[in-house]
Design a protein around this nucleic acid. Structure first.
Length: 777
DNA sequence: CAGTGAGCGAGCTTCCGCTTGACTT
């Protein structure tokens, strides 16, 4: 039996470390926290100085039992959880739960997994820092109080099963406020004027732009008229050196952003793939806020760069984190072995690995040296000037392997090469073009840009970014959606051979892909929380309490006194809100129904957002109509709301039977001959769809249905082989059966099917999936 | 699968941060 038991947080880490240490050491993992507040109730004794009631969750009992057994037999137990607030608490919980003795317990920390770092740590053990543990307990208890006291208020005042919390509610607020900013945004237009010149007998072209955009069509035309018969002369050339530096190595947040922009991965996808790479020993830990690289990694990167690119490209350095509240218990995310620029694995794993490899190596490479040239072109007939800009890459440096992407979709970049020019040179005008431009509203958040914003505000941790994003979507506060753009016309003028011609161009604007939108319930909950719990929804709330947690960690403040100071007024607000505030359904009265004269209003109903004619208190029952996808209680206008009541409407006659369009529980549909045909909100609108298109939709659905049946049998018409979303399967008496991978669905015989049906266990056959009613509305 | 939105009451929902596997369809 080994004399030493080392406990770390992650099993992959445990097996790596076990290799570094000799036979006298056994290394095990706690799999994160081993104890937590009871889930079933508050788990805090408010009257006993907020004393927490910890329990060991069911899925942790096995680990705890094993660690207990091993620790009994060990001479020394080394608590090697992470070097941050949570890690310190994990060490303390282990100490308490395993019933360890002070004399035989040692607390060690290291923030890189190298043999040296670990041996050094073992030579410098310390005791558990109880102040730091208390800071964690305060954090845990504050979060529980906020979450478990506010959520029930929402159940009463808005809808059951909703939730609120220090992190998620602020995430929703960001999205709500951005959406309102966008709704209030008024686009202004101007004209971008570009001058196109020919140099060197038509061979080389030069593109330039007028110094300033012109505000109106009139002024633009004036300018173009002024250019009649003008001469164009190069009046100035300025060349300036500039440089670009490599970005620091990846943290969780920057990896999520780059994987989103470069590989179109969702935040959850990135983390799942990174987890696999980590478990396979290909990369370092993927939940980190540190940009730090180990000495070994820096040297390895240096060697790779020297070997592949030469000395001019090597610039070893350590980056400093600028992130608010970073705890830096781990290294940056990097390849474990920098020699491997590629790995085996799934396509996604390879692409993510390659991204990490390039970013890490680039971070140790020299700056790129650029030369920016600005050329001024005078117009003889007016004071305005054309400006041509060009950029020449003098030395590529880190750009050889990595270019960081950005969020803003700027229209054009100036990275053009300019032809050789001299001052005084006269240029031949090819044409001038003036195009109408529109200002853009702030972009909607993507999952990754929301994580970036949360990190900037110091809200949430690397381990919670992905879960938070999924929670706000699961609660129905936020929808990740694509939106079709709308067409808009823009004017375009061409000035060539002193003649102005006009064109009207069409462009698509406002199209969105995988962007975050607030739902109606998100808007209502957000407004409710801001009006009653302003302090907690404040963007600085986390930063403020973090300062107090730091005071606790330094031993300057007693943790439960800090909690008490927060809780007393908070709890009073909770009670007051419960007693006094109205039920909130986000009701808006839009006007009067022209037919009945009764009020037309929109609100949240039992099944989501809806429009209503007449009050619920009226003798006559009100009329109801659900809102369509993409419509919102907050922005829908009177006409659109009224139009909803024209459904279901008859579109026309097809095959001697009427086709009608409507909206039901599962969205918009067509009904024909008692059969329903779903229509996609992104393609058709039940209010405007015409007969021709409706017949087309029905036809498509019919052929799809025909293709669905792969096989049917004469022996028993109830057994069929069908083609489904997950491939072929057998359908029999309302039950579905999986076809074993060893069988080819095309060649299945009637006997084969019967055998598969009879061999499928009854428990699986009869069981219907338990549908959790969570995402309705 | 499809146009609901009543009302009663029991029982349940919920937080943030550490960690990995189970789970079918």
């Amino acid at each position: 039996m080994a004399e030493n038991l080392v406990i770390v947080e992650s099993p992959a880490k445990a097996s790596t470390i076990e290799k570094f240490l000799g036979k006298d050491y056994i290394v095990k993992s706690s799999y994160g926290h081993i104890r937590d507040l009871d889930k079933k109730n508050l788990g805090i004794d408010i009257l006993q100085e907020y004393s927490p009631q910890y329990i060991i969750p069911e899925d942790k009992t096995k680990v705890v039992a094993e660690l207990k057994k091993l620790s009994k037999n060990a001479k020394t137990v080394w608590l090697a959880s992470d070097e941050d607030r949570e890690g310190e608490a994990i060490a303390w919980h282990l100490f308490e739960v395993l019933g360890l003795k002070q004399e035989k317990t040692k607390r060690i920390v290291f923030n890189e997994i190298t043999k040296n770092a670990i041996l050094n740590a073992i030579n410098k053990p310390r005791d558990i820092d109880i102040n730091l543990v208390n800071a964690q307990q305060a954090r845990r208890i504050l979060d529980r109080l906020v979450g478990f006291e506010i959520s029930p208020v929402l159940w009463k005042k808005v809808r059951p099963s909703l939730s609120a919390g220090r992190v998620q509610s602020v995430a929703v607020r960001l999205i709500v406020e951005r959406e309102r900013e966008i709704n209030a945004f008024k686009s202004t237009t101007s004209f971008k004027v570009s001058g196109h010149f020919i140099i060197d007998e038509k061979k080389v072209k030069l593109l330039s732009e007028l110094e300033n955009k012109i505000d109106t069509k009139e002024l633009t035309l004036n300018f173009l008229k002024k250019c009649t018969g003008a001469k164009y002369t190069v009046s100035g050339i300025i060349t300036k050196p500039s440089k670009k530096s490599a970005a620091p190595p990846f943290t969780t947040s920057t990896l999520q952003q780059e994987a989103s922009r470069k590989l179109s991965f969702s935040v959850a996808q990135t983390m799942a793939i990174a987890q696999r790479l980590y478990e396979a020993g290909k990369i370092t830990y993927m939940r980190t806020d540190s940009v730090n690289l180990s000495e070994t990694a820096i040297n390895a990167a240096k060697n790779v760069i020297l070997k592949s690119f030469g000395e001019k490209y090597s610039y070893p350095r350590q980056y400093k984190t600028k992130t608010k509240g970073a705890q830096e218990a781990h290294e940056a995310i990097r390849p474990t072995y920098l020699d491997n620029s590629e790995i085996e694995g799934s396509n996604q794993e390879q692409r993510l690995y390659e991204l990490i490899w390039k970013r890490t190596v680039a971070s140790q490479m020299t700056d790129a040296i650029l030369e920016k040239t600005t050329v001024a072109i005078d117009i003889s007939t007016t004071v305005e000037k054309f400006i041509a800009t060009g950029e020449v890459l003098k030395f590529d440096g880190f750009l050889k392997i990595y270019i960081e992407s950005t969020d803003d979709e700027s229209e054009d970049n100036n990275e053009r090469l300019l032809p050789p020019l001299t001052i005084g040179q006269e240029l031949t005008l090819d044409y001038i073009r003036a195009t109408q431009r529109f200002t853009h509203h702030a972009p909607r958040y993507t999952e990754a840009s929301l994580v970036k914003k949360l990190e900037e505000l110091g809200i949430g941790r690397p381990s919670t970014y992905a879960p938070t994003i999924s929670t706000v979507q699961q609660r129905g506060y936020v929808l990740k959606e694509d939106r079709e753009g709308i067409e808009r016309v823009c004017q375009d003028f061409l000035f060539k051979n002193d003649v102005i011609s006009e064109k009207v161009l069409k462009e698509n604007t406002g199209a969105e892909k995988a962007k975050l939108f607030p739902s109606d319930i998100g808007l209502i909950v957000n407004d409710f929380l801001i009006s009653h719990f302003k302090e907690i929804l404040d963007y600085n709330f986390t930063a403020n309490v973090e300062k107090e947690f730091d005071e606790i960690a330094m031993g300057n403040v007693v943790w439960y006194k800090m909690i008490d100071k927060f809780y007393k007024p908070f709890h009073e607000t909770v009670q007051e809100t419960t007693e006094k505030s109205e039920r909130n359904v986000g009701e808006r009265i839009l006007g009067k129904d022209p037919v009945s004269g009764k009020p037309l209003l929109v609100r949240i109903g039992r099944f989501g957002p809806m429009a209503q004619i007449g009050e619920s208190t009226d003798e006559e029952k009100p009329r109801f109509a659900g809102l369509l996808k993409g419509q919102s209680i907050e922005t829908i206008n009177f006409e659109d709301a009224l139009a909803l009541f024209s459904l279901p409407r008859v579109i026309g006659i097809f095959e001697n039977t009427a086709i009608s369009a409507g909206v039901g529980r599962f969205g918009p549909y067509l009904k024909h001959d008692n059969k329903y045909y779903s229509i996609k909100p992104s393609e058709d609108n039940p209010l405007t769809i015409n007969l021709e298109r409706a017949v087309e939709v029905i036809g498509l659905k019919r052929t799809e249905q025909e293709n669905k049946v792969l096989k049917s049998f004469k022996e028993d018409s109830e057994i069929m082989v069908l083609n489904g979303r997950f491939g072929a399967y057998i359908h029999y008496k309302k039950n579905n059966f999986k076809i074993p991978k060893t069988k080819n669905p095309e060649t299945l015989t009637f006997e084969d099917c019967k055998e598969i049906i009879s061999k499928t266990p009854a428990s699986v056959k009869g069981k219907k999936p338990v549908r959790r009613k969570k995402n309705s509305a």
